[in-house]
Amino acid sequence: MGLALLVMIWLITFISTYFFAAKTWWLPQGASTSAPGIDHQFAFTYLLMGIVFVAAQCALGYFVWKYRERGAGAVADYSHGNTKLEIVWTALTAILFIGLNLMGSPIWAAERFAPADAGALPVEVTGMQFAWYFRYAGPDGKFGATAPKLMDPSAGNESAIGLDTSDPAAKDDVVTGTMYLPVNRQVDLTLRAVDVIHSFFVPNMRFKQDAVPGLAIHMHFTPTAVGDYEIACAELCGLGHYKMHGMLKVVSAEDFEKWMAAREAEKQ
């Protein structure tokens, strides 16, 4: 029985570790400035936890086999523990866990403590059951007013977020269901939700932030590679949660200007 346990625990350990180490299912390709830092911290945490995981499981399997009851001769140690070992072990884990925490903190601080750069592109993201809308301020650089009573989700885009067209600042606002961003330029996001909590999740951008009714949450990130990236909702928002998806198209600065000009032209 001791051997069966040893084999089983070791097999479970090695198979589990293999699929992590082989990166069969790993973080999706990163495409933002914050991705390398997050991925590095993830890999480093994984390495340390992996070592502890393999060591602890192997010791467990080995001990139960090695110290199995064999006949009447052997006697168990009469020991109530070892305070010195206990203190060393406690200190080591404290250093490991708290050290990891401190290492990862600068990445979090860089993303969340500083406001967006002055040259960042302002985009307002609005979540509602079950769609994402993206608003660009237009040439005047100002978001126009919206009003709850004007919101009509069935009409989509401008009407869905209740854009008040009587406000001059709203005239040039562009609202779309697909997010366009120029590559290598920071985006200054304002996240809103109109009904329940949603969460704006772009795996490739290593970006996730809840959008909460009643709050306007400011965040920023910088895409670094041209391409199409899927947007998901990561907070349970109702029966259509699984299909509340969107698309982020990261394009060159010129393509972005062209696209924006075309949207403005449509509004005239």
Partner: peptide, 28 residues
């Protein structure tokens, strides 16, 4: 014994989720 094995396995994913930085990709 199974409890100890599972406690180790389930516990060691904790330090990933305890880091706000890694919660960005992993939360929810």
């Amino acid at each position: 014994i199974g409890f100890v094995s599972l406690f180790v396995s389930g516990g060691l994913s904790g330090p990933f989720l305890a880091q706000p930085t890694l919660d960005i990709p992993l939360h929810d």
